[in-house]
Amino acid sequence: MSIQHFRVALIPFFAAFCLPVFAHPETLVKVKDAEDQLGARVGYIELDLNSGKILESFRPEERFPMMSTFKVLLCGAVLSRVDAGQEQLGRRIHYSQNDLVEYSPVTEKHLTDGMTVRELCSAAITMSDNTAANLLLTTIGGPKELTAFLHNMGDHVTRLDRWEPELNEAIPNDERDTTMPAAMATTLRKLLTGELLTLASRQQLIDWMEADKVAGPLLRSALPAGWFIADKSGAGERGSRGIIAALGPDGKPSRIVVIYTTGSQATMDERNRQIAEIGASLIKHW
């Protein structure tokens, strides 16, 4: 067993022997301040990774656009098919120029040779490549099948209805392509620590998230040296922004954090800054 596999296998073990965790309302004060600064709703939840206990939450059962955070769930569904012998990570998928959609920095470079399922998941999570996500959605049967996968996990809230990039439209009061912070946090925890996926697939999923290259201005910008984070960000229309993450000190994750916002007129930089400040408060009061 590799060191990384050992780390993920012992996530519940280490967490069980940690000192009790206590909620700190100071972080919620910052979440509410972010709402004021952005002029928009902000949803927040913080779960203990081992027990699933909610440590703090704000608007945990209000719907927010998922945006690209759905790509972690998508690759979880792909990995479940791999575990069941219905898919192979090494299978190569070929596609054409007509398949390319807006923001496809990886797939646009491989029109000639195609990409493997493993490479597509890596591109979808680490670079948020939209064509990679659409190609992977095709392998599982489309958005409705991802929703069905989530329902089978016990998540009857999260739903995907459309493809990239239309799913980022974020129309107010439109339930399409949305989740709730509580539902997303619980589902992410199941994917990373539950028995739904094999140990190898859980490790692969967290490795992809740990290698995320496009979430630097968010929670990662607030992390002290030595902290662990595996995350996936999302951005959408109407001032929408979000991030889902597993993080913790001492090089291992111990909490799940989900943050979503929508309806702001603020710039992307300002949305990023507010999420980073929430992260800084979380870490300060850990």
Rank of each mutant, 00 (worst) to 15 (best):
G251Q: 13
A182E: 10
D212A: 04
N152T: 14
G216V: 07
R189E: 09
A182T: 13
D33V: 15
D155C: 01
I278C: 04
N134W: 02
I259F: 07
L19E: 07
T193A: 15
S57Q: 13
I11R: 05
S122F: 15
R255L: 05
I275D: 00
V117D: 00
A245L: 03
F58S: 09
Q86A: 13
N272K: 02
L219R: 03
L111C: 11
F22L: 13
L79A: 03
M127L: 12
N152Y: 13
L120S: 03
G251L: 09
W227M: 03
F14P: 02
R220Y: 02
S57G: 11
D177P: 01
K190Q: 12
A225C: 13
L247I: 11
N272Q: 05
A40T: 08
R63E: 05
E87C: 07
H110S: 08
S233E: 01
T116L: 08
T267K: 12
E35C: 05
E164V: 00
T69W: 00
T112G: 15
I45V: 15
T158V: 04
N50D: 15
M209I: 02
D269P: 10
D129E: 01
E87W: 05
S264E: 04
V106L: 14
A182S: 12
M67P: 00
L150A: 08
Q4C: 10
N152F: 12
L73V: 13
L89K: 04
L199F: 11
A133N: 02
D36G: 15
Q204C: 13
A280Y: 10
A211F: 09
M209W: 03
S68Q: 00
L10T: 13
K144A: 14
F22K: 09
S221Y: 10
F64Q: 02
A245I: 02
D174M: 04
N134F: 03
N168C: 06
P249L: 06
S96T: 12
I3Y: 14
I278P: 00
G90I: 11
K109V: 12
T147W: 04
R81I: 06
R220C: 03
V257Q: 01
A123S: 10
I171V: 15
I278F: 04
R92C: 07
W286E: 02
A266F: 08
G154E: 09
A222L: 07
H110T: 05
P105G: 04
T139S: 15
G85S: 10
T193D: 09
D174C: 06
